[in-house]
């Protein structure tokens, strides 16, 4: 996994999660984040984020974003 993806997909996922956290409770935020990522991210980007999580390299990934991407596995 290249550094390129760690520096792009992790903050992107966090940004999305931050928005959905502001919209409602934790469960809704995870669902909203997951739905958004599924609707707008190419599968390769989701795979890359999952790979980072699996490899323990997704430093700084928020809890909501982490739950959301794991839901999309």
């Amino acid at each position: 996994m290249s550094a390129v993806h760690a520096t792009s997909v992790v903050p992107m996922a966090n940004q999305i999660a931050t928005f959905f956290v502001s919209q409602g409770d934790h469960a809704a935020a995870v669902a909203g984040t997951a739905d958004h990522i599924k609707a707008f991210w190419a599968p390769v980007m989701r795979r890359e984020l999952l790979a980072l999580v699996d490899a323990g390299m997704a430093d700084g990934l928020s809890d909501v974003a982490r739950e959301a991407i794991l839901r999309l596995r």
Partner: peptide, 18 residues
Amino acid sequence: AEPGLRIPNMLDEAVAGA
């Protein structure tokens, strides 16, 4: 049935070699 890459994503993927 799944979306493709957006311009910045294409460039990221290019730098990554894919």
